[in-house]
């Protein structure tokens, strides 16, 4: 059982989607996340174990490697693709309302900004680490965040901005969220964002990379 779960973890870590996929070259011809997940379920390994002890472990490793510049955006996207392929087999097995998610993460690029590559990477890595992600897209105003928090009161909020000009928009959104929901946790990120800025606008966390967001959320979960 452990060996199979390790193989599934490797497939996510190295972006091996299925047997037919040529990537990565050193795993060519081998089963990928697709086939191995089916095998694991056939052998009686629970969907929860495949997720927690296989897929999430692999995605966590990818997040760390990305932070350390050992892999780049295309490889992370390939890992996310491998993870999503495996998840297609697991989703029907999770009873509705009991998907065993670690929590809910609401993410969006702030109003005025249309950049989404960083936001998408964070979404994929947070999702790959066992959280439900509600992606509000780009150019998201405060009201949309607040309306969504209304639906998911325990959610952690992620705000992304690439432009220095939309940092002000980020500050306003944090302020508006905190006015309505003072205890809602908000994490921020993006190229021009710093720890100083985070403290200045009253956000709860700044992460320079997706794995930092996961670590922040995991810490909140432990202390809850």
């Amino acid at each position: 059982m452990e060996e199979l779960l390790n193989k599934i973890s490797d497939c996510v870590e190295f972006g091996k989607i299925n047997k037919a996929a040529p990537y990565p070259p050193n795993m060519k011809g081998q089963d990928g996340a697709d086939e191995l997940t089916v095998q694991a379920l056939e052998q009686g390994i629970s969907a929860k174990d495949v997720l927690s002890n296989g897929l999430i472990i692999g995605m966590e490793k990818v997040g760390v490697k990305f932070r350390e510049n050992k892999v780049f955006v295309p490889q992370v996207l390939m890992s996310a693709k491998a993870m999503n392929t495996a998840m297609e087999h697991l989703k029907p097995l999770f009873a509705e309302g009991n998907t065993d998610k670690k929590g809910v993460f609401i993410i969006g690029t702030v109003a005025g900004d249309l950049h989404d590559i960083g936001k998408n990477l964070v979404s994929m890595i947070v999702e790959g680490n066992g959280y439900e992600v509600i992606d509000l897209g780009t150019d998201v105003p405060a009201k949309k965040f607040i309306d969504t928090i209304n639906e998911f009161p325990d959610a952690i909020i992620g705000l992304s901005s690439l432009l220095t000009t939309t940092m002000e928009s980020m500050a306003n959104i944090v302020k508006e969220i905190k006015t309505v929901y003072p205890n809602q946790k908000v994490t921020i990120g993006g190229a021009p964002i710093t720890q100083d800025f985070c403290e200045k606008i009253g956000a709860d966390n700044f992460s320079a990379d997706p794995q930092g967001v996961v670590e922040f959320m995991n810490k909140l979960k432990i202390s809850a």
Partner: peptide, 12 residues
């Protein structure tokens, strides 16, 4: 530019 070296693996 994407960090994949000058000779990309497939499918890149």
């Amino acid at each position: 530019f994407m960090g994949l070296g000058e000779i990309p693996d497939e499918p890149f």
